[in-house]
Amino acid sequence: MTGLLAVTSEQVTNYGALAALIAALAAALNSIGVIGPNRRKIVEDTNSTATSRATAALESALTRVEADNTRLREDVDQLEAKTTECLERLRIVTVERDSLAARIERMNAAFAAAGIEPPA
């Protein structure tokens, strides 16, 4: 009985050591992502990181486009204001020109009535 127990104890030690060696090998392979649950985690993390990076890049691009739009809107507003101002000035100049033309016309008529040659 004692002999049987001694043999069993030796076997347990040997097989225990062997199991520990195999378990360590499996754990090491799992750690570097060759097998096991860590491999799945690495894939998940990589996908998640790729998605995050893509989302961040899209958000960045969108922000840039929005900034461009804002700048463009400001430019168009400024251009519109300037155009309105120019049109108003043109209208005033036109009215003034018409008025001056009418006055010249009247003076020419007065010169003609007085029989004087109007100045060139």
Partner: peptide, 8 residues
């Protein structure tokens, strides 16, 4: 792995 550096 979870670091998100925006490579834009």
């Amino acid at each position: 792995r979870r670091v998100v550096d925006v490579g834009v």
